[in-house]
Structure formats: structure tokens, C-alpha cells
């Protein structure tokens, strides 16, 4: 479906504020168009996607996020990589990789690595589940759903599970000539996690989710509707 340019020539003051959107990338003012699922509207000026709703998006995102969380659990607690060279064996888990910096002055880096590859991705998934669970069930959102989804959005650049997987691939190439590495179930869980996350992000339209949250706020529709 070709993207549609959102309408940008109109008299701003004749339109209710709730129907206007400012492009977060260039501030161009648009009147929010009615968009069918699988269609999308892009900014007239910079081309950024303003709205791209998908049918059944919330159910799909919820299912994929729940899957990711289970895969993350498996990735942390199962064997990750097994290295063997001339009769010697060493096994490393994902947490071992994070704890690699736990000597002396580098301890903070261990904490940071654990956060970037496990804690933040898992927290982000939980926040998305918390926000979407009531929407999937057709109920009012839970308290602080706005804060939860905003935090999930903020954490996105710091959620680096997919970068870690590419890091593993590079490390394997580096030791390939010197030792034999056997990937364990946690390795495959991590790879699956990355694929599921990519799929999940393709269903995620922030405008659609913000509209749903605003429309399902418990007894507080006044804030959205009462603007001049």
C-alpha cells in the first residue's frame, strides 16, 4: 500500500487540537487522517511515518512480547556456549559474559552490560505487556499505563539484545581457528528472541497505541476531549 501524505494545508485554528498532530521529527503540523489498517500516513515535509495501524496489532504484539520474555528467561538460565580446545572445556552462560568485567575497577561495566543485554530488554517487554494486556481484553488500561509505555519507548535505544547476538557471531569468528565452539540452547533462544523482537516492532505503531491508551483511560476522558 503506498504511503499517503498527511494533509498539511488547512487553517490550524479551525480544527480541534485533538485532531492535529505535529511531526515529532520536523514539527510540521498535520490534520490526522483517517487511516485503514495496513495503510500509513507519512509526514508531508520529512517523510516520517505518522500513523501506520495494523489489524489485531495489540493481540499480536502482546503474544510476541510474551514469547520474547519466555525466550529471555531461557537464554539467561540455559547453557549458552561451550568452548573446547585440545581436551580442555569451558562453558559460559549469558551472565558469565556480563560478569566478565567483574574484576576490580571494571565492576560498573559488568552491571551496565547485564542491564543492556538482559535487564533493560526484559523490563521493556514487561512494560509493553502491562500496557497492552487490558487493551487486548477490551478493558480500561491499568493505572500508570501512560508512564509505563513512555518508559518502554525511552528504553528502546538502550535495549541491545540484538547487538549482543551479532557480538557473539564476531567473537565466534575470532576464536574459530583456535578452538571449537558449540552453541547451547540459550544461544538459539537469543537468536529467536531477536527475530521475534523485529517482528514485534513491525506491528508497533505508537500513534495507534497512544490513541488506544487515551481512549481506555479509567474515568478520565476529560483530558483528551475537553481541549478547545
Amino acid at each position: 500500500m503506498p504511503p499517503r501524505a498527511a494533509e498539511s494545508s488547512f487553517t490550524a485554528h479551525a480544527v480541534p487540537l485533538a485532531e492535529l498532530r505535529a511531526c515529532p521529527h520536523c514539527d510540521a503540523l498535520h490534520r490526522l487522517p483517517q487511516v485503514q489498517p495496513r495503510e500509513r500516513a507519512v509526514c508531508d515535509r520529512c517523510g516520517s511515518v505518522l500513523i501506520a495501524p495494523r489489524a489485531d496489532a495489540f493481540t499480536r504484539i502482546f503474544a510476541l512480547a510474551a514469547t520474547s520474555l519466555i525466550l529471555m528467561g531461557a537464554a539467561v538460565f540455559m547453557p549458552f556456549l561451550d568452548l573446547s580446545a585440545s581436551g580442555l572445556h569451558n562453558r559460559a552462560s549469558v551472565l558469565d559474559a556480563a560478569l566478565a568485567f567483574s574484576q576490580g575497577a571494571m565492576v560498573p561495566l559488568s552491571v551496565a552490560v547485564a542491564a543492556l543485554i538482559v535487564v533493560i530488554p526484559a523490563l521493556r517487554l514487561m512494560l509493553i505487556l502491562y500496557t497492552l494486556a487490558p487493551l487486548v481484553a477490551g478493558r480500561p488500561v491499568l493505572s500508570r499505563a501512560r508512564q509505563a509505555f513512555r518508559l518502554a519507548d525511552r528504553l528502546k535505544p538502550w535495549s541491545m539484545a540484538e547487538i549482543f547476538v551479532i557480538g557473539v557471531a564476531v567473537a565466534l569468528v575470532k576464536v574459530a581457528g583456535l578452538a571449537m565452539v558449540t552453541p547451547g540452547p540459550a544461544f538459539w533462544a537469543f537468536c529467536a528472541l531477536v527475530l521475534v523482537t523485529v517482528l514485534q516492532d513491525s506491528f508497533m505503531d505508537k500513534e495507534q497505541i497512544w490513541q488506544a491508551i487515551a481512549g481506555a483511560e479509567p474515568a478520565n476522558d476529560a483530558a483528551e476531549g475537553a481541549q478547545p
Binding site: 566478565a100 552490560v113 535505544p157 547487538i163 567473537a171 576464536v175
Partner: peptide, 17 residues
């Protein structure tokens, strides 16, 4: 964010070898 890959490679190598 992709530059963080170097740090992860070091972490993996150090935990493996």
C-alpha cells in the same frame, strides 16, 4: 548503539577463553 558490539565481543571472549 551498534558500536557497543566491541564491548560485547570482549565480554564474550573473556568469559569463554
Amino acid at each position: 548503539r551498534w558500536s557497543m558490539i566491541d564491548v560485547f565481543v570482549v565480554a564474550i571472549l573473556a568469559s569463554l577463553v
